[in-house]
Design a protein around this nucleic acid. Structure first.
Lengths: 253, 253
DNA sequence: CGACGTGTTGAAGGAGCTCAATCTAAGTGG
DNA sequence: CCACTTAGATTGAGCTCCTTCAACACGTCG
């Protein structure tokens, strides 16, 4: 499979690409790079030269405040274009780090820019990708600003499950989420201790189960209701939203 | 003055527009519309057809959670392009409301789209405008997620002052901010009562003064330090950043 | 003048934080 | 295969920042 195939898949979500468009995308100059757990893909303050398409693994954006605490701003899953955000600006205003060993296709920003203006269908798709990132960011702000710990946590779990299913990486009720509780805490504006108590309480109520990085949601509707999760802000085209399929049978162990 | 002059000014901040570019921007089809205090410019869930350039007045973006609480996501000042965010997507994922009586130039989205792909300089400028909005949104998330009430409030005041000065609408230490404490609370993820106590405490320490909508910052450096305000995330080009000029003499009264 | 929107203040309670100890599972080296 | 290490998860206890509820003050406007 061509390394940039996941990029095509993603862009087709946002805009109709004809044959020529797709060929052009696949011919983008790029090199695949591996990053090992916890290493930086982009450092705040640096001048960006490449944008990365996440091929495998998980990544996240973050900022550090003066007092040294960290806010995780977004979580990225395979297929996501990481860093169009910083790309067309002077210097990176936040960092991107990987959660697990990951692979990226690094594409020079100038190549993205050229192709975007040569082919409007591609330009619109790239633009929409950044707009959807922005929409997710707004929901994230509201989540942190106006929901309590239980609601926030439920919302995040639902968002991750939903996005992973849309990306073909599991079912919304059963997926890998390789984040420590400390990372979850930084994503939700809470402390690790409190996240722990919140997760345990969801578990105890039979809503979720966690083992290692595997998250299982036993009552999707209930969790989505608690977290006020309405997937509209993800802007997934209706055609791509499968009817809610039954959860895969979880192998008893 | 041409109604779209503020748009030109804003776009020139993000990209070099030549004469032809500028003529094209000014020839965008548009109609000016007045909105009276508290009315909606965009309603969540509707299909957007126009993007608005804020000509005069103040506006803000917001979302309501299931429990009925509101999160203010961004504040807009004259010159801002409101709603490129929603424009290229299926339907608005949040609402835009005006803080004061305001005037907008409403431009059909299709016209924006055409001009963006006809003239890359314009396209890049528009794209950057949305990217900077995204950057501000990330800082906002971090502000709400990882700073306490005093820090959050200071940060917001500094951001508003700085942006208003960059837009030529006052000095960073003396500006109009027509928000009630309830609106400030919803912007910062706090309650009106607590915002009130926080503002009063800043006042009592001699850092700020408020009278009606006029905010005065008496010790910019101190307030910026408290709020961990580093303007880099606004991505203002170096050429536009005036050296920190002395505050205008405030008329004793 | 009375009503309403907004700002201010007090008192009590609670959601989430801090500090600190303990537990667990997955390495790792012998 | 086992002792040792270590990152991460879990639990407890006390505290605090912020919320909630409620009253009151103030200015504007009909």
């Amino acid at each position: 499979m061509h390394a940039l195939e996941p990029l095509i898949q993603k862009l087709k979500r946002w805009s109709d690409l004809d044959e020529a468009d797709q060929r052009l995308v696949l011919s983008l100059p790029h090199s695949t790079r591996r990053f090992s757990r916890a290493s930086y893909v982009v450092q705040e303050g640096t001048v960006p030269s490449h944008a990365g398409v996440l091929l495998s693994g998980f990544a996240f954006r973050q900022k550090i405040t003066a007092s040294g605490s960290r806010q995780v701003l977004a979580i990225h899953i395979p297929g996501d274009i990481v860093d169009l955000q910083n790309s067309f600006l002077d210097r990176a205003d936040h960092s991107v780090q990987v959660l697990t060993d990951s692979e990226f296709a690094m594409v020079p920003i100038s190549a993205f820019k050229d192709i975007a203006f040569q082919r409007p269908a591609i330009g619109i798709a790239l633009w929409r990708e950044t707009l959807v990132d922005g929409s997710i960011q707004r929901e994230w702000t509201a989540n942190v600003g106006r929901r309590n710990a239980r609601e926030r946590t439920s919302h995040l779990l639902c968002e991750c499950g939903y996005r992973l299913e849309m990306a073909g990486l599991g079912h919304r009720t059963r997926f890998q989420l390789p984040m420590t509780q400390e990372e979850l805490a930084d994503a939700l504006g809470l402390t690790p201790v409190h996240i722990n108590r919140t997760l345990m309480s969801l578990d105890r109520e039979g809503l979720t189960t966690r083992r290692r990085n595997l998250v299982q949601i036993h009552d999707w509707d209930a969790l989505a209701a608690i977290g006020d999760f309405e997937p509209g802000y993800l802007h997934i085209p209706a055609a791509l939203q499968p009817a809610l399929t039954a959860a895969p049978v979880s192998k008893a162990r």
